[in-house]
Design a protein around this nucleic acid. Structure first.
Length: 654
RNA sequence: GCCGACAUAGCUCAGCGGUAGAGCAACUGAUUCGUAAUCAGUAGGUCCUCGGUUCAAAUCCGAGUGUCGGCACCA
């Protein structure tokens, strides 16, 4: 006699086992029809699965957030059935729901191409129209292996063999077609509806390991209804419009070319944006107690051998040598990172505990030979500049430095318009330097520091750096891809390897801990994300061109030049458009170039020494005396940190 | 690096065996006009590179390079 508690607190009793479908029917025919699945004590179950014990339940319908995951997972199964119907010999592997859709990986004699999509989609619609119920079948390991072996599904057999002992093995059947699956699923293929679309094909390694076979993956998207599908496709188009590669070209910020793969050619406007960000960061670091250094580009391999990078990353380093006979055996590496160089500076003198924490920053220009397939616009390049710093400190200072760092990082992200970011905690990888005791110590210190800083993170097991655990601070791009920008890494290993030492209060020589940290990560990546974040419509302080002075008649040219000079001498990036185009055309052009302010100058303004300011995208204008316009815009263009500084009362020197 | 797709004027694209085209941008001229496109004209291309097939290749085939989408990688 299970007692079933509904979300409103009411309780129903049934004679013997009861299914989700029966519960829904008992509540009402409308709910029975809309039901897709049932949540039983917090776990998602099929509607057809009998509930034998008392439970708190919730019927899942199309409106619930869980519905999308069910629809997508169902859709993946239908895709797999369709593919196997059309391409005999195709083996199934895995096919999970993902953000916005689903995918399924197949092993087949040839990769699938988008040309296969129409036939597959048609077959999928056929399967959905048939409306066969999803049937959950509990089986044994032995029977499941026998079943898939008889079908020649060797990947499925491998999956079953690797399931932990004691795990319930379930199959899901839709009509004649069966898949190994944990579930749950909706009531029938008909419940999927018609709001799905196959999107793209891709190669993917079996079990994500590059040593394994490459499978053919088909991605699809699926939604509750056609309206949601259309909205999603529209969102993708919008995202394409704000792609940093497109905007970078349109706004003349940078370009890339074959002769320097993975390196950015910054154009004047892009470089202005870069310098604005760099100057901002330099002020923030200085205010936060960092010292700035600059270290060599070319460094002898000896140093990389000592640091351990040579052993692990040699293949990803650019090497340089010279023809000179006497020098030809010397191999230099274009530095792939800055930390070993910073330790060299640290080591040049005897350091006292009083010097710690020593926060050493560098806008470090680095080169890494990234695999060709990893390159992506200016977000993933081979030549980049990190806003790098290493904090040399004692173990006791780790927590405090972490708190300070997270505060600084949050404030910087906020200033650039990123209110939210996610944090991942990556712990010890399989291949690593340092003893387990040292790793215990480093991970423990970082966890404690997170607690103290109030940082909520998700765990990223085994993804730490080879010398220590790390926090990754992740921002999201226009099309929902995540990019790691900030990082904080605790390192007990490198100080040991490079013999960094300080003299403690008791006179003993001790090893400092190194905290590797970056906020932007690389300027290239961060600027790419910044471009997408604002879709090129930057706030005034960041805009590469801040004001366009546009004339209506040529009689106003002289005054317009004076206006442009006035803005320029207030430090604003200004361009004058004195061409003989109509004002509508000038405004259109400046608007398409995402210039935030247009100063329109006609006869009236020239006669009264005023300017008519029009904001990007706005429809109104503000007429101001020239002096006031300059003062207002100059104030608005003040970087947020300087504005905050100006607002604070000056501390008395005491 | 792996799988797939793509590469034609500055940009977006058409042409898909018979020797290269449009729109926008650029340039020149006219127009002096009040808030997102004034009109007219001109110029612009080793059709990514190399090789092959063919009487003939932007077009078909092969190799390479680059880009794009994934996967793997990311100190």
């Amino acid at each position: 006699m299970p007692a079933i508690t509904l979300p409103d607190g009411s309780e129903r009793r049934f004679d013997g086992a009861v299914t989700g479908a029966e519960i829904a029917a008992a509540v009402g025919p409308g709910l029975a029809k809309a039901a897709l699945a049932i949540e039983v004590d917090g776990e998602l179950w099929d509607l057809s699965r009998p509930i034998t014990k008392d439970a708190r339940v919730r019927i899942i319908t199309r409106k619930d957030p869980e519905a999308l995951e069910l629809i997508r997972h169902d859709c993946a199964h239908v895709l797999a059935e369709a593919v196997q119907a059309l391409f005999p010999g195709a083996q199934v592997t895995i096919g999970p729901p993902i953000e916005n859709g689903f995918y399924y990986d197949f092993a087949y004699e040839r990769p699938f191409t988008p040309e296969d999509f129409p036939a597959i989609e048609a077959k999928m619609r056929e399967i959905i129209a048939r409306g066969a119920p999803f049937e959950r079948i509990v089986t044994t390991r032995h029977d499941a292996i026998a079943l898939f072996e008889s079908k020649g599904e060797k990947y499925k057999v491998e999956l079953i063999q690797d399931l932990p002992q004691g795990e319930t093995i379930t199959l899901y059947r839709q009509g004649e077609w069966v898949d190994l699956c944990r579930g749950p699923h909706g009531p029938s293929t008909a419940a999927i509806g018609d709001a799905f679309k196959l999107m793209k094909v891709a190669g993917a390694y079996w079990r994500g390991d590059h040593r394994n076979a490459m499978l053919s993956r088909i991605y699809g998207t699926a939604w509750r209804d056609r309206k949601e599908l259309e909205a999603y496709l529209h969102r993708l188009e919008e995202a394409e419009r704000r792609d940093h590669r497109r905007i970078g070209r349109e706004m003349g910020l940078f370009h890339l070319q074959e002769e320097a793969v993975g390196s950015v050619f910054w154009h004047p406007k892009g470089w202005r944006l870069y310098r604005t960000v760099e100057a901002y960061m330099r002020r923030r670091l200085e205010a936060a107690g960092y010292v700035e250094v600059r270290t060599p580009q070319l460094v002898d391999r000896r140093l990389w051998e000592a640091s351990g990078h040579w052993e692990k990353f040699r293949e990803n380093m650019f090497l340089a040598s010279v023809e000179d006979e006497a020098e030809k055996n010397r191999i230099l590496a274009l530095k792939p990172m800055n930390c070993p160089c910073h330790v060299q500076i640290f080591n040049t003198t005897v350091r006292s505990y009083r010097d710690l924490p020593l926060r050493m920053a560098e806008f470090g220009s680095c080169h890494r030979y990234e695999p060709s397939g990893a390159l992506h616009g200016i977000m993933r390049v081979r030549a980049f500049t990190q806003d790098d710093a290493h904090i040399f400190c004692t173990e006791e200072q780790i927590a405090d430095e972490t708190v300070r760092f997270v505060e600084l990082l949050s404030s910087v992200y906020r200033d650039f318009g990123f209110e939210t970011f996610s944090v991942k905690f990556s712990d010890r990888p399989a291949k690593r330097a340092g003893s387990d005791a040292v790793w215990d110590q480093a991970e423990g210190a970082l966890k404690e520091a997170c607690a103290k800083a109030g940082v909520a993170y998700t765990l990223n097991p085994g993804e730490g750096a080879f010398y220590g655990p790390k926090l990754e601070f992740v921002l999201r791009d226009a099309i929902g891809r995540d990019w790691q920008c900030g990082t904080l890494q605790v390192d007990f290993v490198l100080p040991e390897r490079l013999d960094a030492v300080y003299v403690a209060a008791d006179g003993a020589r001790r090893r400092p801990v190194m905290l590797h940290r970056a906020i932007l990560g690389s300027f290239e990546r961060f600027l790419g994300i910044l471009i997408e974040q604002y879709a090129g419509r930057f706030p005034l302080w960041l805009a590469p061109t801040q004001v366009v002075v546009a004339t209506i008649v040529s009689d106003a040219d002289d005054y317009a030049r004076a206006v442009a000079r006035a803005f320029a001498s207030a430090g604003l990036a200004v361009e004058a458009d004195l061409s003989n185009a109509k004002i509508q055309a000038k405004i259109r052009e400046a608007s398409l170039a995402h210039v935030p302010v247009i100063a329109v100058i006609g006869r009236k303004e020239a006669e009264t020494r005023t300017v008519a300011l029009r904001r990007l995208g706005g429809e109104t204008q503000t007429i101001l005396p020239l002096d006031e316009a300059v003062a207002r815009l100059a104030a608005e263009a003040t970087p947020p940190d300087l504005r905050a500084r100006a607002a604070e009362p000056v501390e008395a020197a005491a």
